[in-house]
């Protein structure tokens, strides 16, 4: 396991956004090829296991494949192959390839930079980057509720299935009532949790922000290098 490219969560987010937006602007084949090399380099640098990356890619990859699979057959004029009624066209194939490469590269960046970061640390990093307090509080509380809500939902869905006897239309009403009951129950708990947080001093004026320590020099250099990388790729794309 090699070291993370950047240890400070705030700089990780900054690097991730810079590279992701840089990658999303690339279209030229040379720039896309360099983007793939850079992404592989980052995977190697971070020591991200390929198996974890592939497992994370599985579901979103299917969604993207569903979106781009029609492009090579419907887009463009230059036919490069024909199989029965299907004609493979160069422009559509190039577009689908570009989309796939950019998607995989940006998704890999997310896994490399914040995939192993606990969400509470990520929210702390966003607070450090100036995210409004209300959004930070909402995100923290949401995080607190997600697992509870999923657990309650699974239990109530099981109970609903066991009761059975719903017609096709009755099922919509039953699902609505299930959701409403879940919201009522969760709302009461959410109020209690939030008030308890406030009593413990959450959001008090003058409270010190965690993670306000100085940024390691190596992180600053790494971020500068990654910004330079994004800029270089944009220049290559522009010149190609």
């Amino acid at each position: 396991m090699r070291a993370d490219p950047i240890t400070d969560p705030r700089l990780r987010v900054a690097a991730l956004l810079t590279l992701a937006f840089g990658f999303s602007a690339l279209h030229a084949p040379a720039a896309l090829a360099l983007m793939v090399v850079a992404t592989l380099g980052l995977v190697w640098w971070s020591g991200t296991p390929a198996r974890r990356l592939l497992r994370a890619l599985r579901l979103p990859g299917v969604v993207v494949a569903g979106l781009v699979v029609i492009l090579p057959f419907t887009s463009g004029d230059h036919v490069i192959a024909a199989v029965g009624p299907l004609t493979l066209r160069a422009e559509g194939l190039a577009a689908a390839t570009g989309i796939t490469l950019r998607f995989v590269a940006i998704f890999t960046l997310i896994v490399v930079f914040v995939g192993a970061l606990p969400l509470s640390h990520l929210i702390g990093a966003l607070r450090g980057l100036g995210l409004p307090t209300l959004l930070v509080d909402m995100a923290l509380l949401t995080l607190r509720h997600i697992e509870d809500l999923r657990h309650d939902l699974a239990r109530m869905q099981t109970a609903m299935r066991l009761r059975g006897g719903y017609g096709w239309l009755g099922r919509f009403r039953a699902t609505g009532w299930l959701l409403a009951s879940l919201l009522l129950r969760s709302h009461a708990r959410s109020e209690r949790v939030y008030h308890a947080m406030i009593l413990r001093g959450h959001g008090a004026t003058g409270a010190a922000l965690p993670d306000a320590a100085t940024v390691p020099r190596a992180d600053k250099w790494a971020l500068a290098g990654l910004i330079a990388l994004a800029a270089s790729l944009l220049v290559v794309d522009h010149l190609a």
């Binding site: 209300l134 509080d137 909402m138 509380l141 949401t142 607190r144 509720h145 997600i146 509870d148 809500l149 999923r150 939902l153 699974a154 869905q157 096709w168 099922r171 919509f172 699902t175 959701l179 879940l182 919201l183 969760s186 709302h187 708990r189 959410s190 109020e191 949790v193 939030y194 959001g203």
Partner: peptide, 25 residues
């Protein structure tokens, strides 16, 4: 009271997040 709606908003955000788990045939 701007913070009064926070618990409900957080709870609904979690519900929005979990909504993909509610499948209707």
């Amino acid at each position: 009271d701007p913070r009064a709606g926070l618990p409900r908003a957080a709870m609904m955000t979690a519900a929005f997040f979990a909504a993909s788990l509610i499948h209707i045939p």
